[in-house]
Design a binder for these strands. Structure first.
Lengths: 186, 186
DNA sequence: CAAGTTAGTAGACGCATGTTTACTTCGTCA
DNA sequence: TGACGAAGTAAACATGCGTCTACTAACTTG
């Protein structure tokens, strides 16, 4: 029957995955404990490893689940700097979750997941960006744009939404657009 | 007398400080253990807390010991973008230690030292930079340059010296100069 | 030379972590 | 209905951490 199942393998698995996604984005890999994930998901701690194998594998699955930059990398390349600027500005100034960016920039110090992070940065940001860019030095240009994105995440984490001072959203977007243009232009 | 002292308080203290500086820069706060510092310094672990109080206080002292950006912030403001570019390019492409930058970008995920890191970023990089900049939005411009610097450190940590691809130093410096100009210009 | 100060040492303490084991309870189906 | 598989649970395990205490031994000083 499809009635309310008190024992719900898939449901529990999904709750764990959701809890882990939010916590990893908010706190970073190291600061998130198995017990915290279990409590947030309303599940027993032993189920995490039963369903995912280990904390590391759960982290990998959380990252694999996340979409790429939604809507940022799509669209005309000429407007790419502006879309990147708006994305970063909004993530810097508000508390809106940007799971991918937040997770990556808050977990990059943990050596046990270095390879996972590296692969994800490559496949979600740097790789697609380099593929989009015409002209020479595409890898260099994509890498520097990526550095700015992740650096913004670190700054946000350190200083909060006021990291950029009292500037208006328009001023921030305008400035960031020019910087991304300098990063990406051929 | 000034003979060879087998019991040398100041010497031991200095060896601990030196070991901690190198290890924090290389591995970040979380990954460096008291026992690792003691082993590297050739000192007993209990002496660390005797001389510095705690791991956290040792970290603060290590940061306080470090100089500011040597030679980068001094000199004509017009050439500031180029000096920043050369600094970042060299730190990205070689293994030359940049203790301040490395320590900051590798330790920013640890909440117990958040305030120390924040103060240091402010007093060593962002603050002096904002003070140098003429015109409006100095804080925004300094913050974005800082984001690029710390993001470069993160990228270096993830991908090693080859993070930027096969580009020459000249190409990297030229590109970074343009980006820093876009960050800093009034 | 004897006493006192203090650098240095060994080891334990309490705690938190990721992981695993032994067990209980629910749901299903022969 | 009763047995079996699987979802869920509680508790322990092993390990590593920062910190602290009790102690030893080297240097200084009277």
């Amino acid at each position: 029957m499809e009635g309310v199942r008190r024992r719900d393998r898939e449901g529990t698995r999904q709750r764990i995955l959701d809890a882990a996604r939010g916590l990893f984005a908010e706190l970073g890999y190291d600061q998130v404990t198995m017990r915290l994930i279990a409590a947030e998901a309303g599940a027993n701690i032993a189920l995490i490893n039963r369903y995912f194998g280990s904390k590391r594998e759960l982290f990998a699955e959380v990252l694999a689940m996340q979409g790429r930059f939604p809507g940022v990398l799509d669209g005309p390349v000429a407007e790419l700097p502006r879309r990147l600027a708006e994305y970063v500005a909004d993530r810097l100034r508000s508390d809106l979750a940007s799971p991918v960016m937040a997770t990556l920039s808050r977990s990059s110090a943990s050596p046990e997941i270095h390879d996972i992070i590296r692969d994800r940065v490559n496949s979600a940001i740097m790789g697609p960006l380099a593929a989009l860019l015409p002209g020479e030095e595409a890898q260099l240009r994509a890498a520097l744009a990526t550095a700015l994105i992740t650096g913004s995440g670190t700054l946000r984490q350190l200083f909060g939404p006021e990291a950029l001072g009292p500037s208006s959203r328009e001023a921030v977007v305008a400035r960031l657009t020019r910087i991304f243009e300098a990063c990406l232009e051929g």
